[in-house]
């Protein structure tokens, strides 16, 4: 399973689109600078669903404790897509091939 920042961004983008699931998001350009709060106006429950989908995708490779713990949902929604990519990348434990 690829854990490069590019692969994480692609996964995240796909999850954002499928979770929001409205017409506008399908054509909306999502990049590292995109902000969940200001640009996507994501609802807190949508962020939870995206986080859960990412966790499910990476399974035990991703320590959810490491990347979400203790942060309020408002702090998380205040992140950019790039911030979240970095968090996920940092929390992914390298596994032997």
């Amino acid at each position: 399973m690829s854990t490069t920042p590019e692969a994480i961004l692609a996964l995240l983008t796909e999850r954002i689109r499928s979770t929001v699931n409205e017409d506008w998001i399908q054509d909306f350009e999502i990049g590292l600078e995109t902000r969940f709060n200001d640009d996507l106006e994501l609802e807190s429950i949508e962020f939870v669903k995206i986080a859960d989908a990412i966790q499910a995708h990476y399974g035990n490779q991703l320590g959810i404790i490491a990347w979400l713990s203790g942060k309020s949902i408002h702090e998380l929604i205040g992140l950019s897509v790039g911030d979240l990519v970095d968090y996920i990348h940092g929390a992914l434990q390298p596994q032997a091939a």
């Binding site: 959810i64 404790i65 713990s69 203790g70 949902i73």
Partner: peptide
């Protein structure tokens, strides 16, 4: 309220 009420601030740390 919804799952987000507890998700990151409480459920994630407790889930350790």
């Amino acid at each position: 309220g919804n799952m987000a009420t507890w998700f990151s601030g409480y459920a994630s740390p407790l889930s350790a």
